[in-house]
Every structure is written in C-alpha cells, then in structure tokens.
Design a protein around this nucleic acid. Structure first.
Length: 284
DNA sequence: TCGCCCATATGGATTCCGAA
DNA sequence: TTCGGAATCCATATGGGCGA
C-alpha cells in the first residue's frame, strides 16, 4: 500500500470544521500560493488586483470580474503580479451542498469552469458574495436558505458563461458530447471525475448511479463511445501530464497522485499514450 | 535513489445472451 | 429496460534487473 506524498492537500477537517457545509473567506494575497488541491469545492471571485492562476497546469490571467470553480479533481496555484496584490472572495463547500441537477449542469460537459464577467455581471456577483458574507457573520433563521440561493445563482451563472466560452474544452475525457447520454451514466461521469485519483472500480461507478456493473458497462460505452476503463485512464493521464508540466514532483509521486498504483504500469501507460516516458515528457 | 524496462500471473472489465 | 451468468480479453500488479 503506497502512501501518497504530493502537493499540499487541503482537507475537510482543516478547512470545514464546522457543521456548515459552506464557508466564505475574503483573501488579500501578497505572495504566491503554491500548488495544492482540496477535498472540497472552491469558487474564487476576483474583486481587485491582478495575477496569474495556474489551473491544472494551464496558466491564465486573473483580474477583477474573473470567477473560477475547482472540484476535488483539480489542482492550482495563485500568484499576484510582482509588487501587487490579488483580492478575492474564496467560497468553499462540500459535494453535499450542491443538488444533483446543479451538479449535472456544472459537470456534464468537460472540465472548463471559469468565466470573465463584464461590469454588470461583476457587480451582481459581488452583491451575492456580500450577502453570503453578511449572513455568515450573523447566522440566523433563514440564513442557510439565503446562502444556498446565492451560491446556486452564482454556480448557474458560471455554468452558463463557461458553456458559452469554453466549448472547446468540453469532452476532455473523450465523451461524445453531441450524443444524448443516459442520466444515470451522466451521474456516473460526475462521480468518476471526482474520484479518478482514488482506486475506483466499475462496481463503484455503477453503484453511484444504481445500475448493475454489467449493464452499466454497456450503457457507459454506448453513451460515451469509450469503455469505463479507457475513460478513467484518460483522466488519470491528463492529470499526470498536467502535474509533470506544472510541478517539480518526482515521477513516482505523480504516479500515485494520479491514481496509478505501480510505477512500471504508469510509465508504460504514459509512454503508450503520449509517445514518451514521463521523464522525457517533462524535459520536452 | 530514481527512472525505466521486461516477463508473467491474476483479477477486473467487457461482451454476449437469455430471462424477467 | 434491466439483470445475472459465463466466456474472453486485457489492464494491472509483482518481482527483478539495469543504467544514470
């Protein structure tokens, strides 16, 4: 049994010790936040300053009005511009906080969940965050529903905007997005996207949508065009590739962090997929 | 110590088919 | 539409070795 030792992993116990499934922070960054990931979801909204956000190894500029959502499957780092600061709202919540229809809305089309709001949208989003902030500071009867409503409005708006802007990012796992996917399989896709770094079996995925393993395997292939095993492997490969590109972690650690259990298997699979070993790929 | 490669056994995934 | 049984396939784990 290997013990994972990768970039910092922020746990529910450390950051969400209270009974509430959601927490909001106001952050003013003056230095770099190193690469890390979480057991919870994180929604960031920039209200001032500028900097760089490296999401899954892909750098992007951040300035006022930018909003991003990270799942437990994503990793990132943040850095304000030299000599400057980056001010943002940082909302964290666990998966129980999002209702199933919203989960499907957010995660049934790939993994690109960022948006750059115009002035009007920015002001509207700021009002939502301000409401959450005030309710959190003075929790009373009805606060839970108000916060839930604000967060859901923010997520729906993000989903709509990232759909418009990020269609080219869809289907990163190879799914046939133009073909209607059975709702139960779509539910399993979300489950897989959030658990592919762990030891996940066909039975687990089938169980997440209430189907038998055999039948799920058939439905999955019909709906996505690839087998369950191929889909999980591709997610792991892309994750490992991003880690190689954006961190200095040893290949061994990246192997385990990506959900592979043995190094030889990881190296062989990586070379077969990308035409170069992990080390060669990093050099390139 | 780390990264890479090879051979082999094994267990899980896939597929097909009949039944409810 | 969904399930379970059975046969087959193949990804994975394991152990060992080599070079930098």
């Amino acid at each position: 049994m290997s013990v994972y030792r990768g970039p910092e992993r922020l746990t529910n116990e450390s950051y969400m010790p209270q009974a509430s499934p959601v927490r909001l922070f106001k952050q003013r960054l003056e230095g770099r936040i190193e690469t890390h990931w979480h057991e919870f979801f994180e929604m960031g909204f920039v209200v001032g300053g500028s900097g760089t956000h490296v999401l899954n190894g892909v750098p992007m500029r951040l300035s006022r009005g930018d909003l991003f959502l990270l799942t437990p499957a994503d990793f990132h780092s943040l850095e304000p511009d030299s000599g400057g600061t980056l001010e943002l709202y940082d909302l964290i919540f666990n998966d129980q906080f999002i209702r199933d229809p919203l989960l499907e809305l957010l995660f049934d089309r790939g993994t690109h969940r960022t948006a750059c709001y115009d002035r009007e949208e920015t002001e509207a989003a700021e009002r939502e965050f301000e409401l959450i902030w005030k309710e959190s500071a003075d929790w009373q009867a009805g606060s839970g529903m108000l916060v839930q409503g604000s967060v859901e409005r923010l997520l729906i708006q993000l989903s709509r905007r990232s759909r418009e802007a990020g269609d080219e990012y869809a289907s990163s796992g190879g799914q046939a997005v133009n073909q209607p996917i059975q709702p139960s399989v779509r539910k399993a896709l979300i489950y897989i996207q959030h658990h592919f770094r762990d030891t996940i079996t066909l039975e687990d995925a089938a169980g997440s949508c209430g189907l038998s393993p055999n039948y799920f395997s058939e439905c999955f292939r019909k709906g996505t065009g690839v087998t369950f095993q191929t889909y999980v492997q591709e997610l792991r490969m892309q994750f490992a590739k991003s880690l190689l590109k954006s961190t200095r972690l040893p290949v061994t650690e990246i192997c385990f962090a990506s959900g592979f259990n043995t190094l030889p298997h990881f190296e062989r699979a990586f070379k077969r997929r990308f035409g170069a070993s992990p080390r060669e790929h990093r050099k390139q």
